[in-house]
Nucleic acid binder design. Structure first.
Lengths: 214, 214
DNA sequence: AGTCGATTCGGACTATAGTCCGGTTATGGC
DNA sequence: GCCATAACCGGACTATAGTCCGAATCGACT
């Protein structure tokens, strides 16, 4: 994971604090890759980074916060693609950054996609992200009670999903967005993976999105 | 909660073991009612029941297991109603135990219900159960990693839901059953409750069941 | 360069879930 | 009624998440 892409620190951060944060993220990424997310304790992360536990928890809040920080770059990439990328994941239309060759409508970029298509593309892309970092997302969602719903990222996915569902004419877009995201929860997907396999989960989730958006 | 309805102990159980189990369940029920599920530790339960921690954990496995044991009676009532009760929750038809006054088809009990109606009735009844014991179910589902999916009760709900969805012609009943149950997870419902309220959650879940079963 | 206030550091401390094993007690056969 | 054995009991022990505050460090200002 490219550490230089991680979330920008607060504007004025002391040099030692910046050094420590980088050391923690680097050590955590290494330990998680080496031993698996489950098997690594916060004590180990702190020791490997050469900082005290107090520092670790003050900077990242709790284990979920550490997970969020590690996922930050990848998450922002996805959010960026949703907000400003080419269709069908993004809105399409002018001024997107995709390859310039495609046939387009409007001034540039890709043709705009309909809400239903955008929703399917979101589910697909989200599952790419989720399956690529399943253990880490699971940690960030289950480390503490209700962690999943408190994190800013969840609200982003929810808002995006609800807007698309509303545009597609759903009766209660807010609720349905939560329901769709429930089927994309890390804990849920991790439990279904051995039973159903990746592709069946993906097909089922996309189909669910389609039925909600009809 | 009527303790005498709790799950039958293994056939040959020593008298002291039976006494201790009853004491634990009684103490746990009292403490949970008094201070809330979250605020009570296993140490407190053991102390209030007058047993050691070893006994508590050997008998119930972990905190989730204690929750399951406490929910057992209520859960079995619901399962019984699903398997053998009157329609639309149960299969209806002969030999049900409902009040004898209704107009019926067949030899006794209620008229049989269609899968879609049974599914809606299940979601409704399950939400009754869930909202009545939300904290306890949440504890039994989240006390340890993947606890929800390992418990026998989950497999029961899933099998029932999947069978109804299959009868209604769903493309992938196994997956859709998991997806519907994901929207009924205690953690999920607890997170949505302050935002949407009980009735909107109920309406949304029933509507979701309807869309999956069409 | 020196000083001073604010920020950060880090390890000792707490709370809690869950494990382990030596001692105790129930129970069934004689 | 007694004994051997198997099951059970319970508290000391471990591991881990998270807290707290005195000490050290930074960096802005003179």
């Amino acid at each position: 994971m490219p550490l230089e892409l991680l979330r920008t620190p607060p504007p004025s951060e002391r040099a030692d604090a910046a050094r420590n944060r980088a050391a923690v993220l680097e050590a955590a990424a290494r330990l998680f890759a080496e031993h698996g997310v489950e098997a690594v304790s916060m004590d180990q992360v702190a020791a490997a980074a050469g900082v005290g536990k107090g520092t670790l928890f003050r900077r990242f809040g709790d284990k979920a916060g550490l997970g969020v920080a590690l996922l930050d770059a990848r998450e922002r990439t996805l959010q960026e693609a949703i907000l400003r990328g080419p269709a069908p994941l993004g809105p399409g239309g002018p001024a997107t950054s995709g390859p310039a060759g495609g046939a387009t409508s409007g001034t540039a970029g890709t043709p705009q996609a309909r809400p239903t298509e955008r929703l399917a593309a979101f589910v697909d892309a989200y599952l790419d992200y989720l399956l690529e970092h399943l253990d880490l997302v699971r940690m960030s969602e289950t480390a503490s009670r209700g962690a999943r719903y408190r994190v800013g990222a969840y609200r982003f996915w929810h808002r995006h999903t609800a807007i698309l569902l509303a545009a597609a004419g759903a009766a209660d877009p807010e609720h349905d967005a939560h329901a769709l995201l429930a089927a994309l929860a890390a804990e849920h997907v991790a439990a279904l993976l051995p039973e159903l396999g990746e592709e069946r989960i993906r097909a089922g989730a996309v189909a669910l999105a389609g039925r909600l958006a009809r």
